[in-house]
Design a binder for these strands. Structure first.
Lengths: 235, 235
DNA sequence: ACAAAAGTGTTCTCGTTACACCCATGT
DNA sequence: ACATGGGTGTAACGAGAACACTTTTGT
């Protein structure tokens, strides 16, 4: 059969907002753009959609290429389509957001792309509409993390409750009562206590926990209420 | 500057899942497709993206054309990108979901597109991946409506609490205690009682209410908890 | 001994739930 | 008078929030 005639055909790009947590700060991964226009400026990691691949495959491909990681948490965020968003040629970009274990990344890091982690409050000006993408990704992360236990995707295999609390406090910019926090987390059944302790951040040491992966899958869709007063957040 | 060379250029389509509520049932609007392939089969309403318009403008254009309505609730759902989703030519489709007041639509209806409303449990087989889009839209509607008062977008200007309860019960396929429901809704401050009653569905008659639009905007982002046990839903 | 972070228990409040009776009206 | 759907109140329960002291250990 013949093609659809007289219709506009466009480039399709994928851009990924990659979040990581180093134990203290929540960060995103940016690269120095390697092509014109805006070569050398900071940018999200991205690529054009290839023939015969769908968007989520493209996002995985980019992530694998830039971080060496597969199987990470990846979710479609939004399609950005301002006709002037790319000055060279009209391009639609579908943004994905990814949550990775920053420690796993460090083992895989390739320096050929000039990638760097930036704290959320120190993100430089980005090319095109990437600022807007980052803003939307931050909002979505807050929104989802208030309802689903996705922040575990940012944690290493073994982690402590104070580390986890740090992350939640970072994501929401609030302080959380540690008694209520640990009770709530422990009551989810998502945590498995380990016999050993982490001793770098305190003299007493904090017990390690691992994620109970079965419960994680089962509870993922449950509406948790991890953040006190989450009904006051904007979503 | 020159264009990006050696990259694939694709068609971009927009498809809209349009929800309406007639006072009894939740329905979606479908059309008989007017072009090949699959001409004559049931389909979501859609169009190709035009030069110089962004996706949300395109979605509004389609909605205006098919329903005569402007300013309706419209939200980007997801970009669908399976390379084989359209057998004629590779096309990415960005699905939007829309909530309209079915009564306003009836005043505007144009018959040239063979549009029909279908109850959610009686949706025919649709072309391409439109079934999947509808499924995702239903899930998203349940998800959002449990947290935000979006179902008011489906109601006429004046409505009764029993009508509203009908809608919530339809969206979730559950029965809700009417005492708890009305208390919860009234406590939001979103409803303004009218002096007159609706008398078609009962002898006693049910008071009309209107939406308090100021409170609606202010409370839209607040996490309400309209559905009992919403934490047991899948999201 | 003391500083620094980890860990734990109780009370109060408020929102959620379950549940039953009266009201207004058309037939 | 009765059938139909609308409208309201109360008691029990459970989740969330506020709050302070003890433990461990390195210095």
């Amino acid at each position: 059969m013949s093609k659809y005639s007289k219709q506009t055909r466009l480039l399709t790009a994928i851009d990924c907002i990659v979040f990581g947590f180093d134990g203290v700060d929540l960060k995103i991964l940016l690269v120095k753009r390697g092509m014109e226009p805006e070569k050398g400026k900071w940018s999200l990691i991205g690529s054009f959609l290839q023939q015969d691949e769908d968007l989520s495959k493209a996002a995985s491909r980019i992530l694998k290429l830039l971080t060496g990681l597969s199987g990470v948490y990846l979710e479609q965020l939004h399609a950005f389509s301002n006709p002037k968003r790319d000055p060279i040629e009209r391009t639609i970009s579908v943004a994905y957001f990814a949550l990775i274990d920053i420690h796993a990344y460090e083992k895989q890091i390739s320096h050929e792309f000039h990638a760097e982690w930036f704290r959320l409050d120190k993100i430089p000006k980005l090319i095109f509409d990437h600022d807007e993408m980052v803003e939307m990704a931050k909002e979505k992360l807050q929104y989802k993390a208030a309802l689903h236990p996705i922040l575990f995707e940012l944690m290493p295999e073994k982690f402590t409750i104070p580390q986890l609390q740090n992350l939640y406090e970072g994501v929401y910019g609030t302080e959380i009562d540690k008694r209520n926090f640990s009770r709530k987390l422990l009551s989810t059944g998502l945590l498995v206590k380990q016999p050993d302790k982490e001793r770098e951040n305190s003299k007493k040491g904090a017990y390690y926990y691992k994620l109970n992966k079965n419960n994680y899958k089962a509870k993922f869709q449950a509406f948790l209420n991890i953040i006190p007063n989450s009904h006051k957040l904007k979503g």
